[in-house]
């Protein structure tokens, strides 16, 4: 169930990761491996441990047991420098509301070591990709939720990350915007050879060829392509499979 490939060849590898909040266990010996160029969906109900896992991978928390290798580099041993290949879209919005879109993105580029000219070129390129090129000088406060989300995703891609972590990136968005983002991000994983790790509890964000990891109560309870999960559970659709794999969550 938790078998992983060689961490050195994977874009992201997590081995036996365990984490407690005080006496409550949030993650229990979680192991996963994320290859380049593919979308891996981390599917789990609220409270499954998805955000804790992301906080550990992004260095906001330190692991209590287990290891994390980002592009083959151990996060604990290498320190913050190992975070360089990561692009992160947090569940909560993280833009500075009082700055413009351009000021927010330039700030991020500076943190990632990009020179101003290169930064401006990349900002224009990514904003165009997300149809936000004309909002460069707008204050973030004046953008709606969907547009802020697009800016956050564009920001996470500015430094051409090898791995993109998306923590419930479509929360609060309307259906057309969600569909649009889902399609664009799957496409980016394929065209740019980015390893996508997408945490969600929404079944309709899963494509047929995605690799799905089901996280429940801090442990991986199943993984594989959607068809394999249907075979395993005998369900008719992925929603049914998810309900079988996370029974207490559904009852709650």
């Amino acid at each position: 169930m938790t078998q992983t490939s060689d961490p050195a060849t994977m874009a992201l590898a997590v081995q036996d990761l365990t984490f407690h909040y005080g006496r409550r266990k949030a993650l229990d010996a979680v192991s996963l491996a994320i290859p380049a160029g593919r979308t891996t969906i981390l599917l789990g109900p609220n409270g499954a441990g998805k955000s804790t896992l992301f906080s550990l991978i992004s260095g906001l928390f330190a692991p209590q047991a287990g290891r994390i290798a980002i592009a083959g580099r151990d996060l604990v041993r290498t320190g913050a420098a190992a975070l360089a290949p990561l692009g992160i879209v947090f569940q909560a919005q993280t833009l500075d509301l009082d700055l413009t879109v351009q000021q927010n993105l330039r700030y991020f580029c500076a943190l990632r070591g990009m020179a101003r000219r290169e930064a401006d070129a990349r900002i224009a390129e990514e904003l165009d990709q997300f149809s936000m090129g004309d909002r460069l000088t707008d204050k973030v406060r004046s953008l709606n939720g969907g547009h802020r989300r697009r800016v956050e995703i564009a920001r996470a891609l500015l430094h051409r990350p090898a791995i993109l972590l998306l923590d419930e990136p479509t929360v609060g968005l309307d259906i057309p915007t969600r569909r649009d983002l889902i399609a664009r991000l799957h496409e980016r994983a394929r065209t740019d050879n980015v390893a996508l790790l997408w945490a969600t509890h929404l079944i309709d964000e899963v494509d047929a060829d995605d690799h799905v990891i089901v996280l429940h109560k801090g442990a991986i309870v199943a993984e594989g392509q959607p068809a394999a999960l249907l075979d395993k559970t005998g369900a008719d659709d992925l929603g049914g499979a998810f309900a079988v794999l996370t029974p207490e969550a559904r009852a709650a």
Partner: peptide
């Protein structure tokens, strides 16, 4: 507001 995370995840 969450914007501190952008700083703290800088390599």
């Amino acid at each position: 507001m969450g914007s501190m995370r952008v700083l703290l995840t800088t390599p």
